[in-house]
């Protein structure tokens, strides 16, 4: 009994480094994609609530397409289907392709989060800002956005955790992330024990980021 536990612990210790290396892909991909997604999301959200009819339509269509199809399909489309149709669009870097697909997808979700947060701010704020002589962009930057951040943080934290777990899809384009490495170790070591350290790693990542997002939320609560 004691012997077998010791053996298990020794096995787990040997897996930590390969798992951690694969986790780099998981973490880097989620952080980069969510950050790019936020930036893209802001512009798409602003387009969605703008007065320009065409801009509004384009941004609406973007969200419709990227939220309405599976992320896996978008990833495959970008990596395989598109270059088979148009060879000039062949990418060689798997990680870059994953970042592009995840960012495009995340931007669509975050645009809706950001739009909801902006529209939840009392319209009186915009009217007051305008009556003080601020332009639309000044009012957005100085009055509306700072107030909406507190309402943005929880759903974006949620989105981040979703993306972190969705990154396991990248094994379909032969990128080795934490999940794929777990599978590989499982088959080479012929034991499912590897799920234990792997699950703990995912929980550590989501735990740390949940804590960070909570701090951020409290920090921005001072605008209330």
């Amino acid at each position: 009994m004691f012997e077998s536990i010791l053996h298990g612990l020794r096995q787990i210790a040997g897996w930590i480094i390969p798992l951690a290396q694969a986790a780099e892909v998981t973490l880097a991909l989620s952080v980069i994609s969510v950050v790019i997604g936020i930036i893209g999301g802001v512009f798409i959200a602003l387009g969605r609530i703008s007065r320009g009819k065409i801009l509004k339509r384009i941004c609406g269509a973007y969200i419709f397409v990227f939220r309405g199809t599976p992320l896996l399909m978008q990833l495959f489309f970008l990596w395989t289907a598109l270059p088979l149709a148009i060879p000039a669009l062949t990418m060689q870097n798997r990680f870059l392709a994953a970042v592009i697909a995840f960012s495009l997808n995340s931007a669509a979700y975050q645009a809706e989060i950001i739009r909801a947060a902006i529209q939840s701010i009392d319209p009186g704020q915009m009217e007051a800002a305008k009556s003080l002589g601020l332009t639309y962009s000044q009012a957005m930057r100085l009055i509306i956005f700072p107030q909406s951040i507190k309402r943005l943080v929880p759903p974006i934290g949620n989105e981040f955790i979703m993306v972190l777990k969705d990154t396991s899809l990248v094994q379909m384009i032969s990128l080795v992330d934490l999940m794929k490495k777990t599978n590989q170790i499982q088959s080479s070591a012929a034991t499912a024990l590897v799920y234990l350290p792997s699950a703990v790693m995912y929980l550590i990542f989501t735990g740390v980021f949940t804590w960070l997002f909570n701090r951020l939320e409290k920090h921005h609560a001072r605008y209330e």
């Binding site: 395989t80 270059p83 088979l84 060879p87 062949t90 060689q92 094994q171 379909m172 032969s174």
Partner: peptide, 18 residues
């Protein structure tokens, strides 16, 4: 060295010169 879920993926990658 890359591994794929489906064998067709390998041949697609060959055609795409990856």
């Amino acid at each position: 060295y890359n591994v794929y879920e489906k064998v067709i993926n390998c041949f697609d990658e060959l055609k795409l010169n990856r």
